[in-house]
Lab assay of single mutants.
Amino acid sequence: TEELDSELELPAGWEKIEDPVYGIYYVDHINRKTQYENPVLEAKRKKQLE
């Protein structure tokens, strides 16, 4: 659920942004990119696909 997503600790260099226009998204300051999917959940999903 969304509530559990926010409890996950983000990897180093990541920041969660709550924007009133664009909603919640994540900033990867190391690689200078943004995405809507939580990077922790993304990594778990990719691992399940292997």
Rank of each mutant, 00 (worst) to 15 (best):
25 Y>H: 09
6 S>K: 10
28 D>K: 01
43 A>P: 09
33 K>V: 13
14 W>Y: 01
12 A>L: 13
21 V>Y: 09
37 E>T: 09
22 Y>D: 11
48 Q>R: 08
21 V>E: 15
47 K>N: 06
40 V>R: 11
25 Y>I: 12
33 K>C: 12
28 D>Y: 00
7 E>Y: 04
4 L>W: 07
35 Q>F: 01
18 E>P: 02
36 Y>L: 12
30 I>C: 06
38 N>H: 15
7 E>L: 12
22 Y>K: 15
2 E>Y: 04
35 Q>T: 14
12 A>V: 14
47 K>Q: 14
22 Y>L: 14
48 Q>Y: 10
30 I>E: 11
21 V>A: 15
15 E>H: 04
32 R>D: 15
36 Y>E: 09
46 K>A: 12
19 D>K: 02
47 K>I: 02
15 E>C: 01
46 K>I: 11
19 D>W: 00
42 E>I: 10
26 Y>K: 02
34 T>E: 06
18 E>V: 11
12 A>R: 14
7 E>K: 15
41 L>F: 15
37 E>W: 03
19 D>Y: 00
36 Y>W: 11
46 K>F: 06
48 Q>A: 12
27 V>A: 11
33 K>M: 07
43 A>I: 11
39 P>M: 01
35 Q>M: 09
45 R>K: 14
2 E>C: 15
3 E>Q: 08
23 G>C: 00
21 V>I: 13
15 E>D: 02
13 G>R: 02
4 L>H: 15
25 Y>M: 13
42 E>L: 07
38 N>A: 10
12 A>D: 11
34 T>Y: 05
47 K>S: 14
43 A>W: 08
50 E>L: 08
38 N>Y: 05
39 P>R: 01
9 E>R: 09
39 P>K: 00
30 I>D: 03
44 K>I: 04
24 I>A: 05
31 N>K: 07
14 W>R: 04
8 L>R: 11
42 E>W: 07
45 R>A: 08
8 L>C: 04
45 R>M: 09
13 G>D: 02
49 L>C: 15
18 E>G: 03
35 Q>V: 09
19 D>H: 10
8 L>G: 10
33 K>A: 12
23 G>H: 00
19 D>A: 02
33 K>Q: 13
12 A>M: 02
10 L>Y: 02
5 D>E: 09
48 Q>E: 15
8 L>P: 07
41 L>C: 10
17 I>L: 12
1 T>M: 12
48 Q>S: 13
46 K>E: 07
43 A>T: 14
4 L>Q: 12
5 D>G: 14
37 E>R: 04
5 D>L: 13
30 I>L: 11
46 K>N: 04
6 S>D: 10
43 A>R: 11
11 P>F: 03
30 I>N: 04
12 A>K: 10
17 I>V: 15
45 R>G: 11
7 E>Q: 04
13 G>V: 01
37 E>Y: 02
18 E>T: 14
50 E>A: 14
8 L>D: 03
16 K>P: 00
40 V>A: 15
1 T>V: 11
23 G>Q: 00
26 Y>L: 01
29 H>P: 03
31 N>G: 14
5 D>C: 14
23 G>E: 01
42 E>F: 02
45 R>T: 14
41 L>I: 05
7 E>V: 14
50 E>C: 15
36 Y>N: 09
4 L>F: 12
43 A>S: 11
35 Q>D: 02
37 E>D: 10
35 Q>E: 05
15 E>V: 04
3 E>F: 15
22 Y>I: 09
45 R>P: 12
45 R>S: 12
41 L>M: 14
31 N>A: 09
29 H>V: 08
29 H>L: 09
34 T>A: 04
2 E>Q: 10
5 D>H: 09
6 S>L: 12
14 W>H: 02
48 Q>C: 10
27 V>I: 09
19 D>V: 00
1 T>I: 05
49 L>P: 12
23 G>A: 00
5 D>W: 06
7 E>H: 08
37 E>V: 06
30 I>K: 11
15 E>A: 05
13 G>M: 03
40 V>I: 08
1 T>S: 14
26 Y>W: 07
12 A>P: 11
25 Y>L: 02
43 A>L: 13
47 K>M: 11
10 L>C: 05
26 Y>P: 04
37 E>H: 06
17 I>S: 03
24 I>K: 07
34 T>C: 14
1 T>L: 10
6 S>I: 09
7 E>N: 08
43 A>C: 07
46 K>M: 05
29 H>I: 05
26 Y>A: 06
43 A>F: 05
42 E>T: 11
5 D>I: 14
36 Y>I: 09
27 V>M: 14
9 E>W: 03
15 E>I: 01
24 I>Y: 02
10 L>A: 06
21 V>R: 13
12 A>C: 15
30 I>R: 10
10 L>V: 08
50 E>Y: 01
48 Q>P: 02
4 L>I: 15
33 K>R: 13
36 Y>T: 12
22 Y>G: 13
37 E>L: 08
42 E>R: 02
44 K>Y: 12
21 V>N: 12
41 L>Y: 13
18 E>N: 13
36 Y>S: 11
22 Y>M: 05
34 T>N: 07
18 E>K: 06
40 V>C: 13
6 S>R: 15
3 E>S: 07
41 L>D: 14
46 K>Y: 09
26 Y>Q: 04
41 L>Q: 14
44 K>W: 07
46 K>R: 11
2 E>L: 05
14 W>L: 00
6 S>A: 13
40 V>S: 13
34 T>M: 07
25 Y>G: 06
48 Q>H: 11
47 K>G: 09
21 V>K: 14
21 V>L: 14
50 E>T: 09
36 Y>M: 15
39 P>S: 02
25 Y>W: 05
37 E>F: 03
14 W>I: 15
5 D>Q: 10
34 T>F: 04
31 N>Y: 01
33 K>H: 03
11 P>S: 04
26 Y>G: 04
38 N>Q: 04
17 I>F: 07
29 H>G: 06
49 L>V: 10
21 V>S: 09
43 A>E: 13
48 Q>K: 13
40 V>F: 04
27 V>S: 06
21 V>H: 07
43 A>D: 14
21 V>P: 06
37 E>N: 13
32 R>C: 09
21 V>F: 14
50 E>V: 05
43 A>G: 10
30 I>Y: 11
7 E>D: 12
41 L>H: 14
9 E>P: 12
36 Y>C: 03
46 K>H: 15
26 Y>I: 00
33 K>Y: 05
33 K>E: 03
14 W>A: 01
18 E>Y: 04
32 R>A: 07
11 P>A: 05
11 P>I: 04
11 P>T: 08
15 E>Q: 08
32 R>M: 15
44 K>V: 06
46 K>L: 10
16 K>F: 01
8 L>E: 08
4 L>K: 14
45 R>L: 06
10 L>K: 01
18 E>F: 07
40 V>M: 13
5 D>R: 08
17 I>C: 07
2 E>S: 09
49 L>N: 08
7 E>A: 14
